[in-house]
Write a protein that binds this DNA or RNA. Structure first.
Lengths: 354, 354
DNA sequence: GTTGATTACGAAAGCGCTTTCGGAATAACC
DNA sequence: GGTTATTCCGAAAGCGCTTTCGTAATCAAC
């Protein structure tokens, strides 16, 4: 477990430290023979450059940071683990490290980011959950610091990102619902400073428009990004005089909450009321009923993000690294053809009124 | 965004770099007055020590690594995000960083760990999902490298860990089930090289014993740690000649699979067959029916792990940092009193036979 | 065989901190 | 008022690498 340094290696080979270093870093002024000798000895003796020394000397960190979304809903982010796996995959191929940092309170957020980029700890940053206009992105842009965003802000022209086309997805979801005969489609959204919430709302509107329906503000509820949020929003919507017969939720988490709300009113999700979520949570298979959702192909998002960020750090133009993936409708059992609801609805109403 | 170094600070104050450094690091040989001047100037000018230089000079990394569990089941680890939040919380109070590394294929695992500890990148390690006898733990112990384990291996005397007493939990679950009248309790487990699987099996056995039942090997199935694994195991168990009337699952993920299996046989989970999981997944509220589970109080596990690891790095004796928490039975709707099953069971059997 | 180009390496100066060591200045002691 | 302690700071040597620069040694060219 004894560390072998470049000095040991040099002494062992009878050459200078500088030569060893240059041989290992593929400098052109090293003869093939010595380069060979050095590399062989290096991995025979198990030499690994001390990263701290290397960093100090070169100024490059050989690490990137992932800014985790804020400690969010009651049900913790199921994606994070998967994303991290992908990221570490991509980075480890170069021997780079992944730092995980938390996003702080919005006020400190920028300060924290500034510290991170001046600290020299990382040479790139992965941001997630961008806001519509995100000060962090502007900061990084201005600083000229390499970064990539998981998602997009509203103006996404001049930086790198990886996103799912959720606008298209929500528009398609509306199509689907209307093809099933639904005419009144509720929307359960999230605060639109989060750009993905805006995108999905846009998709919902676009879908309505494309199908000749007019957007009815009363049919949209902005809720918390949690099951409870979805539940509250759904019961709000269903208590209307002329309630929607289908509910489109910005998130699977909200959708399962909506499912609960529907059931709580004595209605059958999928038959009386259709509910569609977004994310493709694996757990959706097990809800009651199984949740129909727009599934995003996020299997390799982490890997992609990592590779793209590395390319940018290598000098690639950020604008050339923008990937937009499509989400697919994953039909399970929470959607179904429109049908008039009679008894249970009244039943519920009388319950409400007592 | 101009980096201000210790040199700038020293020049600005008209004192030597060494003095600045010692002032900032609370050396006793600095007068109160200069210390004050230095610290004030430091944060007025926004000085932050270059971590790489600091690391090189001191030899301490000011970072710890979290070894993520291997890319596991189809449903990605829901805990990871929460744990990371806690860990970063604990670390950030000192300004330390969190490195996330992946655990590799078992063969390379030890090599990777060796590299990690000799690299000097981190001064401590958080391990997760220990095996019954875990070579990684032995390696770290032998190397005298600070670490803490999320979970325990079978011999857990001389290192630090944070674990839930799942043996007690499973024993209590058996108690509960028997109090409900169940006499034949199936167990859906995981490969017992994973120590938590062993612990829970032990708890199951202990529970049976305490209640005067004998352990019946036919009633236990070892399955994959996924919903599908649980589903397969459950249908296996339910197809027996004399099937169990209750199913105890090593994991909530498996339990929701078991739920599906029960329903697939035309039986009603919670009435015909009781199913109990372990973990307290928030999603369990939304399964069909809502899943009864042994919930672990893992809200602050990350924070705890972080704090403990830091204490150990500071020189604390690892043996003094061992925390065992209790899991609580969280009753939802998937368990219920024993009742004889007649029609549906036969119904299913005939379906099977056709 | 002299000159100029080329190749291959050693020497040495950093990178930005920390930490030891020695000594000037001040304080304490009788 | 001389001596011993004490307080406080500067100088300088690293930490383990990288990278520039200079220069022997080899080669090519005539």
């Amino acid at each position: 477990m004894q560390r072998v340094g470049i000095k040991d290696l040099a002494k062992h080979l009878g050459i200078s430290e500088g030569t060893v270093s240059r041989a290992l870093n593929n400098y052109p002024d090293i003869s093939k023979a010595t380069r060979q000798r050095v590399t062989e000895a290096a991995d025979k003796m198990g030499y690994r450059a001390n990263p701290a020394a290397r960093r100090l000397a070169t100024g490059v960190a050989e690490a990137v940071a992932y800014v985790m979304p804020t400690r969010s809903s009651s049900i913790s982010e199921p994606f994070v683990a998967q994303l991290l796996h992908g990221l570490t995959d991509a980075l480890s191929r170069r021997g780079w490290d992944l730092l995980v940092v938390q996003s702080h309170a919005p006020e400190e957020e920028e300060e924290a980011l500034k510290r991170l980029i001046t600290s020299g700890k990382v040479s790139g940053i992965v941001l997630s959950r961008p806001q519509k206009v995100d000060p962090r992105i502007e900061l990084l842009l201005k600083a000229g610091f390499p970064f990539i965003v998981h998602g997009r802000s509203s103006d996404s022209r001049n930086y790198a990102w990886y996103d799912i086309d959720s606008k298209a997805a929500f528009s398609a979801a509306v199509d689907h619902l209307m093809a099933l005969g639904h005419q009144r489609i509720g929307f359960i959204g999230a605060p639109t400073y989060l750009n993905f919430a805006q995108q999905r709302l846009d998709g919902y509107k676009a879908g309505l428009l494309a199908n000749g329906l007019t957007y009815d503000h009363d049919l949209v509820q902005i809720a918390e990004l949690s099951d409870d949020g979805g539940e509250r929003a759904a019961s709000e919507l269903l208590r209307m005089d002329n309630p929607p017969t289908a509910l489109l939720c910005v998130t699977d988490l909200q959708a399962v909450g909506a499912l609960a709300a529907v059931r709580a009113m004595g209605l059958l999700p999928g038959a009386d009321i259709s509910v569609i979520g977004y994310d493709g949570l694996a757990m959706g298979r097990h809800t009651n009923p199984p949740l129909t959702t727009m599934a995003q192909p996020q299997a390799h998002s982490g890997r992609q993000l990592g590779d793209m960020l590395l390319s940018i750090i290598d000098g690639g133009k950020p604008q050339e690294f923008q990937i937009l993936r499509k989400a697919e409708l994953l039909r399970r059992k929470s959607d179904g053809p429109y049908q008039t609801i009679t008894t249970p609805q009244n039943h519920t109403l009388t319950e409400e009124n007592l």
